Amino acid sequence: DHWHVHIDGERIRLDGASEEFIRTLEELIRRGTDARELKEIIKEYLR
């Protein structure tokens, strides 16, 4: 599956992301997590 998110107007691909990770991201977004912080979390995950 190819997922991607838009954060700060930037399109970030989440290739190979699990549904669990996507749900976690959605939860963080709902909580109002800062965009820079979200991008860091995604970069760490994709390593």
Rank of each mutant, 00 (worst) to 15 (best):
D1P: 14
D1I: 09
D1M: 11
D1T: 11
D1W: 03
D1N: 14
D1R: 08
H2W: 09
H2D: 12
H2A: 12
H2N: 14
H2C: 05
H2V: 14
H2M: 12
W3L: 12
W3D: 06
W3V: 10
W3Q: 09
H4R: 02
H4K: 03
H4E: 15
H4A: 10
H4Q: 08
H4I: 15
V5I: 14
V5H: 02
V5M: 07
V5D: 02
V5N: 02
V5Q: 02
H6I: 15
H6M: 15
H6L: 15
H6R: 07
H6A: 08
H6S: 13
I7R: 00
I7L: 10
I7H: 01
D8W: 03
D8Q: 06
D8T: 02
D8H: 04
D8S: 04
D8R: 02
D8C: 04
G9V: 05
G9M: 04
G9T: 05
G9R: 02
G9P: 03
G9D: 07
G9K: 03
E10D: 09
E10Q: 04
E10V: 06
E10M: 04
E10I: 03
E10S: 03
R11S: 15
R11G: 12
R11M: 15
R11I: 15
R11A: 03
R11Q: 15
R11L: 15
R11K: 15
R11W: 15
I12T: 03
I12C: 01
I12V: 09
R13T: 15
R13V: 15
R13C: 13
R13P: 14
R13Q: 15
R13D: 15
R13A: 15
L14H: 01
L14K: 00
L14C: 02
L14T: 01
L14G: 01
D15C: 03
D15H: 12
D15Y: 12
D15E: 14
D15W: 14
D15S: 11
D15Q: 10
G16A: 02
G16L: 05
G16P: 03
G16I: 05
G16R: 07
G16M: 07
G16W: 10
G16F: 10
A17G: 06
A17S: 05
A17L: 05
A17Y: 05
A17I: 07
A17V: 13
A17D: 03
A17K: 02
S18E: 05
S18P: 11
S18Q: 04
S18L: 04
S18I: 04
S18N: 08
E19A: 13
E19I: 13
E19H: 12
E19T: 12
E19K: 13
E19Q: 13
E20N: 09
E20A: 12
F21H: 01
F21L: 07
F21K: 01
F21W: 05
F21M: 07
F21E: 01
F21C: 01
I22G: 02
I22D: 00
I22N: 02
I22S: 02
I22R: 11
R23V: 07
R23I: 09
R23T: 08
R23A: 13
R23C: 05
R23S: 10
R23M: 11
R23G: 07
R23N: 09
T24W: 09
T24P: 00
T24F: 11
T24Q: 14
T24H: 15
T24C: 08
T24N: 12
T24D: 10
T24Y: 15
L25A: 01
L25M: 06
L25D: 00
L25H: 00
L25W: 03
L25V: 10
E26M: 13
E26S: 08
E26N: 07
E26R: 11
E26V: 10
E26T: 12
E26Y: 07
E27M: 10
E27R: 07
E27W: 08
E27Y: 07
E27F: 04
E27P: 00
E27A: 11
E27G: 07
E27I: 09
L28E: 05
L28M: 11
L28S: 04
L28K: 05
L28I: 07
L28C: 04
L28H: 08
I29E: 02
I29W: 04
I29G: 01
I29V: 08
I29T: 03
I29C: 04
I29D: 01
R30F: 08
R30V: 09
R30K: 12
R30W: 09
R30Y: 10
R30P: 00
R31F: 10
R31H: 10
R31L: 14
R31M: 10
R31I: 12
R31S: 12
R31G: 11
G32I: 02
G32Q: 05
G32N: 04
G32Y: 02
G32E: 03
G32P: 03
G32V: 03
G32L: 05
G32R: 00
G32C: 04
T33R: 05
T33I: 13
T33F: 08
T33N: 03
T33V: 14
T33G: 06
T33Y: 04
T33Q: 03
T33S: 08
D34W: 04
D34Y: 03
D34N: 14
D34F: 04
A35Y: 07
A35E: 09
A35P: 13
A35D: 07
A35S: 13
A35K: 08
R36W: 14
R36H: 14
R36N: 14
R36P: 07
R36C: 07
R36V: 11
E37W: 10
E37G: 05
E37V: 15
E37P: 01
L38P: 00
L38W: 02
L38K: 00
L38E: 00
L38I: 13
L38F: 03
L38H: 00
K39A: 08
K39W: 14
K39C: 01
K39L: 15
K39Q: 09
E40P: 01
E40R: 12
E40H: 10
E40C: 07
E40F: 10
E40V: 08
I41K: 10
I41T: 08
I41F: 10
I41N: 01
I41A: 09
I42T: 01
I42G: 00
I42S: 00
I42W: 02
I42A: 01
I42N: 00
K43C: 07
K43N: 11
K43S: 06
K43L: 14
K43I: 13
E44M: 08
E44I: 05
E44C: 06
E44P: 06
E44L: 07
Y45K: 02
Y45D: 01
Y45W: 11
Y45H: 07
Y45S: 03
Y45Q: 04
Y45L: 05
Y45R: 01
L46I: 11
L46M: 09
L46C: 14
R47M: 15
R47Q: 15
R47H: 14
R47E: 14
R47K: 15
R47P: 09
